[in-house]
Structure formats: structure tokens, C-alpha cells
């Protein structure tokens, strides 16, 4: 079990671990952002925060966590509800289209975040 959880081959067990690790990164990141926004934030302090190297790396880590977390979640949701049983013979095509759409959007999100932070 211990070897399969860290192996490169994707398994349900590795999904389970990635989902929880990424959740903790995102939770920490959103708490930090919420604390900033609820304080008196102006452009200088906001820009200053994102100019720090640790914040750039944390933001990139949050972006990658978002992509992994959302992909595992949306893969689960699409394979559960967009099925041949619920949608008929076109179920498989609709599911694949939605999965291509969501994965493309998530890759786009990561690229967008990299552009925002390193502009």
C-alpha cells in the first residue's frame, strides 16, 4: 500500500492522497488571502505581497493544487452522473467532451496564474 500511494501510476489511493494534500494547500492559501482582503488592503501592500518570492511560489503551488483537486473532483462527478445510464447512448461522448473541457480550463487557469504572478 505504501508504495502504491507514491507511485506515478494513478490509482484511487493516490487520488485520495492528492485530494487531501491539495485541499490543505488551498485552505491555507484562501485563509491567507481572506485575512489580507478583510484588512485595509491598498495597491501598494497587495502588489508588495505578490512581489515576494515565497508568495509567488505559494501562489503557483495553490494553482497546481487547484488544478489537481478540481480535476479529481470533476472526474468523479462526471463519471458518476454523465453516464450512458442517465444520458443514453451519447453519455460517453458527452462525458468525454466535458472532461476535455474541464481539463483544458484547468490547464488554462494554471497558465493564467503563472502569467499574473510573473508578469
Amino acid at each position: 500500500m505504501a508504495t502504491s500511494i507514491i507511485s506515478l501510476r494513478r490509482t484511487g489511493l493516490s487520488d485520495w492522497l492528492i485530494q487531501r494534500a491539495s485541499a490543505l494547500v488551498l485552505l491555507t492559501y484562501f485563509i491567507l488571502i481572506a485575512c489580507q482582503l478583510l484588512g485595509s488592503v491598498d495597491y501598494i501592500s497587495w502588489r508588495g505581497l505578490f512581489d515576494q518570492t515565497w508568495m509567488k511560489i505559494f501562489t503557483l503551488l495553490a494553482a497546481l493544487s487547484l488544478a489537481a483537486h478540481a480535476w479529481i473532483g470533476l472526474w468523479s462527478v462526471t463519471t458518476d452522473y454523465l453516464t450512458e445510464r442517465l444520458l443514453g447512448p451519447k453519455g460517453k461522448s458527452i462525458r468525454l467532451l466535458c472532461q476535455i473541457g474541464t481539463s483544458s480550463a484547468l490547464i488554462g487557469y494554471v497558465i493564467w496564474i503563472i502569467v499574473i504572478v510573473w508578469r
Binding site: Y43, W46, R47, F50, L66, A70, G73, L74, V77, T102, A105, Y109, W112, I113, I116, V117, R119
Partner: peptide, 28 residues
Amino acid sequence: RVTGVVMFFASFLMLWALDMSLASEASF
């Protein structure tokens, strides 16, 4: 599950706001 799917779409709005807020002082 529903809130997870909503967050996938809401992420677009949050990224848009982050992009705008960091582009320039006028944009902020």
C-alpha cells in the same frame, strides 16, 4: 459536490479579479 462544481466556475471570476488587481494601480 455541488459547491465543488460551483468553485470550478467561481475560480474564473476570482482569477479575473486577481489579474485586474495586480495589473496596475489604476486597474486595482
